[in-house]
């Protein structure tokens, strides 16, 4: 699953730590999501989308193999 969390975060001048605090996770979790090392749960995905005020599918996209 691809995601554009980093792009969306940088667009609103938000740091990883600020995003992490907003959705109550650690900074390494945000790093792992942005680099694709970890696929977040539905709860976290919804929280991220809510923070960016976007739809989930605007941030997270399925790839061919998924």
């Amino acid at each position: 699953m691809k995601n554009s969390v980093k792009e969306k975060r940088l667009k609103i001048n938000m740091t990883q730590q600020e995003l992490a605090d907003e959705i109550a996770v650690s900074r390494q979790t945000i790093f792992a999501i942005e680099t694709g090392k970890y696929i977040p749960s539905a709860i976290l995905v919804l929280k991220i989308a809510k923070t960016f005020k976007k739809k989930v599918e605007d941030i997270f996209n399925l790839e061919k193999g998924d």
Partner: peptide, 11 residues
């Protein structure tokens, strides 16, 4: 427990 025990740590 870690300082912030979230779902990534659980993973």
């Amino acid at each position: 427990k870690e300082k912030q025990e979230d779902e990534f740590i659980a993973h």
